[in-house]
């Protein structure tokens, strides 16, 4: 690699989230160094103190909730050539979407219990509901293998599109015993792959943290869960956990 080749400047930003996805990146170790041949991290609160407003790629982590956050993310959009919604809070609204089950007042009461006079209860949204997002890296937390794959693909100029097939595909190639086989219930069949069937490979069920497929077999999956003895409420709960914002958006679209 020639020395004078301009490195791509990457910055990380967090909104309403646990910062767990940024934390994942610190586990990259030597892979991180490999990437640094081609890019330069200019803002990364999780691992460094310096920061800069000049960047090419912005990794936005977390859901957008308050007015102030909206303004901040708009500014990031203006500065960045490429915006990546990084992690499910940013890419889907994630678990923050559950907040939508309550009114602002209820939410404040539950969370802040009377100490809420100066606190806001924002309306959680995935980043793309506020500004244009170029690429999505899903996951709660994001999966480093996929993050690296996505970054390489973006650097090669071909962008990154997460798979539109279910987690089962990756799970079966690993020859895992299907969780349904063991009487457990799994959201794998309707959830977007790309994580390498991370949870099922370690014996845990899939919570759909990467969000539903573009065309999930909702009817098939619902019938399936019913067959395994789940009620409609249980099933809604399972679909809702990470996909509430999307389902709201779909309901809105249907109304129109």
């Amino acid at each position: 690699m020639s020395e004078d080749k301009k490195k791509v400047r990457i910055a990380f930003f967090d909104f309403a989230d646990c910062e767990g996805c940024q934390l994942q990146l610190t586990y990259l170790n030597e892979n991180f160094l490999g990437l640094l041949e081609h890019c330069e991290i200019v803002s990364f609160r999780e691992a460094m103190s310096e920061r800069s407003d000049e960047y090419d790629i912005a990794f936005v982590e977390g859901s957008i909730t308050r007015k102030h956050d909206e303004e901040r993310v708009r500014k990031i959009r203006e500065n960045a050539k490429i915006v990546i919604a990084y992690g499910s809070c940013a890419s889907l609204g994630g678990v923050n979407g559950l907040r939508r089950r309550f009114s602002d007042e209820e939410a404040k009461e539950i969370v802040y219990k009377g100490r809420d006079s100066h606190l806001e209860a924002g309306w959680p949204r995935p980043v793309h509901e506020v500004v244009k997002v170029d690429h999505f890296i899903h996951g709660c937390p994001s999966n480093n293998d996929e993050t690296i794959k996505a970054v390489k693909s973006i650097l090669l100029g071909k962008g990154y599109t997460p798979p539109d097939y279910p987690v089962c595909v990756e799970c079966k190639l690993k020859e895992n015993v299907c969780l349904f086989e063991k009487g457990q219930v799994c959201m794998g069949p309707v959830t977007r792959a790309g994580c390498g069937a991370w949870c099922p490979s370690w014996g845990n069920t899939c919570y759909s943290c990467r969000g539903l497929l573009d065309d999930p077999a909702e009817q098939g999956q619902t019938e399936l869960l019913e067959k395994y003895g789940y009620t409609i409420d249980d099933i809604t709960e399972k679909f809702d956990l990470y996909n509430r914002c999307r389902m709201d958006a779909e309901k809105e679209a249907e109304k129109k």
Binding site: Y165, P166, V169, K172, G188, P189, A217, G220, Q221
Partner: peptide
């Protein structure tokens, strides 16, 4: 209608 397109049957 019942199929969830998981691709298990082909794998």
């Amino acid at each position: 209608r019942r199929c969830v397109s998981c691709g298990n049957c082909t794998a």
